[in-house]
């Protein structure tokens, strides 16, 4: 695969990844395998680039004070364990399985998000005592509506263990699994969409590092190949991040939905028919 192509794919992947909070991998892996890269190598190189996308955009979100650091740091404990297990499973599993799983993960996020597409975020009425003990409340300034939004994260007892599976998927498929994390933040923990996207970004970096170390140890990361991908993804993500802060919640979501649908169907078909 030519340098220019790798670089271009990575810019697009980084852009879309940052816009949606998914991380670049979810676009990168289908694209890389489409152009002939082995899926396991695509997964390994993708997860390294996910560290870069996540850290790059998280740095901006954190300084904008949209990210909830405590929610992130609590949930990280679960995602890194999942990621280590996931990466180890990928090393021993078949390629067909990885394609189909990739498609299923994409589509299942799509279905769940599609069902509540028209609902805007509502404040959780009741915060359980465990979430209160974890100090998961917060507030941020929303640029698009021009006011401070306060929220209380809840049901951390459920969100934590569920994050184990988000981490597992991240490690398995070399993606940030931002879609799943955002889903858990939105639906289970009742965080506003922007907080859930940006907080998932923060968690993704650490989760991807756990996965990367497994792939590095397996000798599957090629710095010569990873370099243009990382650079492209960072460039794309920088552009995407600039846009997210300005867009409304609905626009982010709608864009997110379209991308997920197309990629999900594509990956499943390739898993079934072979590549």
């Amino acid at each position: 695969m030519s340098f220019h192509l790798l670089f271009l794919i990575s810019i697009v992947a980084g852009f879309v990844g940052a816009m949606s909070g998914m991380g670049g991998g979810i676009i990168l892996i289908p694209a890389l395998t489409f152009f002939g890269m082995d899926i396991k190598h695509a997964i390994a190189v993708s997860i390294v680039s996910v560290i870069a996308t996540s850290s790059g955009s998280a740095s901006a979100y954190v300084r904008d004070r949209i990210t909830n650091l405590k929610v992130g740091m609590f949930l990280e404990m679960f995602t890194i364990l999942g990621a280590l297990a996931g990466a180890a499973i990928t090393l021993i599993s078949g390629r067909k399985f990885l394609f189909i799983l990739f498609g299923i993960v994409l589509l299942s996020s799509w279905i769940t998000l599609f069902r509540q597409r028209h609902e805007s975020w509502r404040q959780a009425v009741h915060q359980d005592s465990f979430s209160h003990w974890l100090e998961l409340e917060g507030k941020y300034y929303d640029q698009s509506v021009g006011k401070i939004i306060e929220y209380r994260g809840s049901r951390a007892y459920l969100g934590g263990p569920l994050m184990l599976s988000a981490g597992l998927v991240a490690g398995l498929l070399g993606i940030g699994a931002g879609a799943l994390k955002v889903l858990i933040h939105d639906l289970v923990m009742g965080l506003p969409p922007k907080v859930s996207t940006t907080t998932s970004n923060l968690i993704i970096g650490v989760t991807a590092l756990a996965g990367t170390s497994v792939y590095l140890a397996a000798g599957m990361i090629d710095p010569g190949l990873a370099a243009p991908i990382i650079l492209g993804v960072v460039l794309g993500a920088t552009l995407g991040t600039r846009l997210l802060v300005r867009l409304t919640n609905q626009m982010v979501r709608r864009f997110f939905l379209l991308v997920l649908l197309i990629l999900g169907i594509e990956m499943i078909l390739r898993g079934i028919w072979g590549t």
Partner: peptide, 11 residues
């Protein structure tokens, strides 16, 4: 073009 794999080693 330069592809060099790292033979399995830790960080």
């Amino acid at each position: 073009r330069f592809e060099h794999s790292i033979v399995g080693m830790n960080f």
